[in-house]
Design a protein around this nucleic acid. Structure first.
Length: 669
DNA sequence: CTAGGGTTAG
């Protein structure tokens, strides 16, 4: 079909005056929270624009242009100025005009490569969709998977979730197989906006399609797990990534993993990554070091932090703002006020302008050192210097006034922040409630809490618990109990919050009751809720409950962290379900999870408790070959297992082996 | 054509 006959076909039809969005079925729809993927079919959201005619004048113009170009060679890529074409497309107001602009290239004049490039540069998602329409209808070749991918990215950037699903369905219908780019784009965008259900849905689709990953895809999956705080899963994915021969992690992937290992409290592994990076030709940068520094600080490992900082200074990595902020924090937490002060006031000389985080940190350091005058001075200095004060600044300052027993000034700050457009948050409220409680103004605290509950402010677990503790401290036990009781039918707090508060208050049966309901309703998503429940049940020796929560956690797709593994192995042991313990340990091991030594030791003890000494020996040999394990402890654990089973010969055999090992390593040294 | 990292307050 040549272009001329195309015009002839439609010349009698009148053009509808339709502007973007291209057709009524393509109205923009944004979904704020979760997208139920199952209920959407392509037809609901993705009805292709019916072919529409041009107005007579447009037609005339197009015809002239088309006739001129009829003698051009088949592919026009080199003669077409893409920027000009993009500009023309950008001026179109509806799909007809856009098709008109594209009409000189009806047929096969523009290559698919050219079109993919064009699509990737078209910023408007609706025009990008219209271009796909044009390709499907007029270009006489189907858009490639790449073409769909770039349009998909465009649609996702505009948060058009339903259209993204529709576009995916369209690909399927046209027999175009989604590739790793498709899935990468989908998983990332949905994950980035907290639509984890959808993200998981695409991950499952991808696995079903047997699409294997590349660095980008694995990085996206790691990011997704990280956002869900599922660090075990992130580590498992990282190990999968490294196991595929053709993928080498890059700087950012390594930096991400330093953070992941740190959050999972595998400090040794986090530290070792620095060396592994160098071995793989990826030099650690400032971010690598500051990530690890922050991890040490979070876990109060200040000696490690200081030694890492001096190691960093011996490399080429330059100090930057974030690292300075972390170091002010380090010195502050070490009560080295002078050093923190020097660091803060010396930053400018190093050419680094302190930002609001620097100010907030040193403000807290002053407060903790009871240097209230300095704190107040710095606070007003910020205002004079025009350093923006954020909610953290105010919360810090409120807490300082609380410490210096100036609760009226603390209260006034809440007014002040609001008048300056800084909205108080849950931390502000829990801080002021504690301050008022200490000042004997519990009625005020109770009134505020009541107001918050009826006003729809987000109340989290700490805030709720602060009010309960305030009642308890004031001796109003009945009120504290009432607040706890109300969590069984929570109205203005999430059920996840309710579960956490109940569990931490030791109300295990109530917590389990709410948990079961919430889980069935699909409301339990936060991995920390599972962890909290497992923790509490384990402490209360409710081992069947531990297992139940764990199984639900796995059902949801979460991986257990090392703490959860340890508690669940213990629960299986107590319930005499040794095979289940064995299976869990092996499965997590195969998935590449990193266990702390204690988990290995616990598995050894479980085998020992069952008198399964064959497995004790084989696991012992396996662990003994790990380079990073505490050998001495391992040998003691195994010897102890044999002792408890009255197998003293075996126990002494193990201890002898340890002694030989010690002598050998001594000789080597 | 696609992606990703570090800091402050209860």
């Amino acid at each position: 079909m040549c272009p001329v006959s195309f015009y002839a076909t439609y010349s009698t039809v009148v053009a509808p005056s339709c502007s973007f969005p291209c057709s009524s079925s393509k109205t923009s729809i944004t979904i704020p929270t979760t997208v139920s993927t199952k209920s959407i079919s392509a037809k609901d959201v993705w009805t292709r624009t019916p072919r529409s005619p041009f107005s007579n004048t447009q037609q005339q113009q197009r015809r002239t242009r088309t006739q001129q170009q009829q003698h051009q060679p088949t592919y026009l890529d080199r003669t077409v100025n893409m920027n000009e074409l993009l500009t023309s497309i950008g001026q179109t107001q509806n799909v007809q005009q856009l098709h008109a602009v594209m009409s000189p290239y009806n047929g096969t004049n523009l290559s698919i490569r050219f079109m993919v490039s064009l699509l990737s540069r078209e910023p408007d998602w609706q025009r990008a969709l219209a271009l796909l329409d044009w390709m499907n209808e007029k270009a006489r070749y189907s858009p490639s998977v790449s073409a769909y991918n770039v349009v998909l990215r465009n649609v996702l950037r505009a948060k058009q979730w339903l259209f993204a699903h529709g576009l995916f369905d369209e690909m399927r219908q046209k027999g175009i197989s989604p590739d790793k780019y498709t899935y990468s784009t989908l998983i990332t965008h949905f994950g980035k906006h907290g639509l984890f259900d959808s993200s998981f849905f695409w991950l499952q689709q991808m696995e079903r399609d047997n699409v294997s990953g590349d660095l980008v895809l694995y990085s996206n999956l790691i990011e997704l797990s990280r956002k869900l705080c599922d660090y075990s899963k992130a580590i498992s994915i990282f190990n999968t990534l490294k196991a595929s021969a053709n993928i080498v992690p890059d700087l950012i992937a390594y930096n991400t993993m330093i953070s992941v290992f740190g959050k999972a409290k595998h400090f040794r592994e986090a530290r070792l990554l620095l060396q592994e990076m160098r071995d793989n030709g990826v030099n650690p940068n400032t971010v690598s070091y500051s990530t690890l520094l922050a991890i040490y600080v979070d876990n109060q490992k200040f000696v490690e932090a200081l030694s890492l900082f001096s190691e960093m200074n011996e490399t080429e990595c330059v100090l930057d703002l974030t690292t300075c902020n972390i170091m002010i924090d380090v010195y502050g937490q070490l009560h080295m006020i002078k050093e923190a002060d020097c660091f803060f006031w010396g930053m400018r000389k190093m050419g680094i302008e302190p930002n609001v985080v620097s100010y907030n940190t040193i403000l807290r350091v002053y407060g903790e050192a009871e240097l209230y005058g300095e704190a107040v001075h710095l606070f007003s200095l910020m205002q004079r210097k025009g350093v923006p004060q954020n909610v953290v600044t105010y919360n810090t300052m409120i807490s300082i006034y609380g410490k210096s027993l100036e609760h009226e000034k603390a209260t006034n700050l809440i007014q002040e922040m609001q008048s300056r457009g800084v909205q108080p948050n849950a931390i502000t409220y829990s801080t002021i409630i504690s301050i008022w409680e200490k000042a004997g103004k519990l009625d005020r605290a109770a009134m505020l809490f009541h107001k918050l509950r009826s006003s729809g402010v987000k109340i989290d677990d700490v805030l709720y618990q602060t009010m309960i503790v305030a009642y308890q401290k004031a001796g109003l036990v009945a009120h504290a109990k009432r607040l706890l009781h109300e969590l069984k039918q929570p109205d203005n707090v999430s059920r996840e919050t309710a579960i956490t508060v109940l569990a931490r208050a030791g109300k295990v049966d109530e917590a389990m009751w709410v948990f079961r309901q919430a889980f069935d309703a699909g409301e339990v998503k936060d991995i920390s809720v599972f962890g909290c429940m497992i923790d509490v049940f384990s402490r209360n020796r409710k081992y069947a409950h531990v297992v139940e929560v764990f199984e639900k956690m796995r059902e949801f797709g979460h991986f257990p962290d090392s703490n959860v593994i340890a508690l669940v192995l213990n629960a299986f042991g107590k319930l005499r379900k040794f095979e289940k313990a064995d299976a869990l340990y092996k499965q997590m091991y195969e998935k590449g999870c990193v266990f702390p030594d204690e988990v290995h030791f616990q598995m050894l003890s479980l085998y020992g408790a069952r008198m399964d000494f064959t497995r004790v020996e084989s696991l012992f040999e396996k662990i003994d070959s790990h380079p990073n394990i505490n050998k001495k402890e391992l040998y003691f654990v195994v010897a102890n297992i044999y002792e408890r089973a009255d197998r003293f010969n075996d126990a002494s055999r193990i201890m002898n082996r340890l002694n030989h090992k010690a002598i050998r390593s001594h000789d080597n040294a």
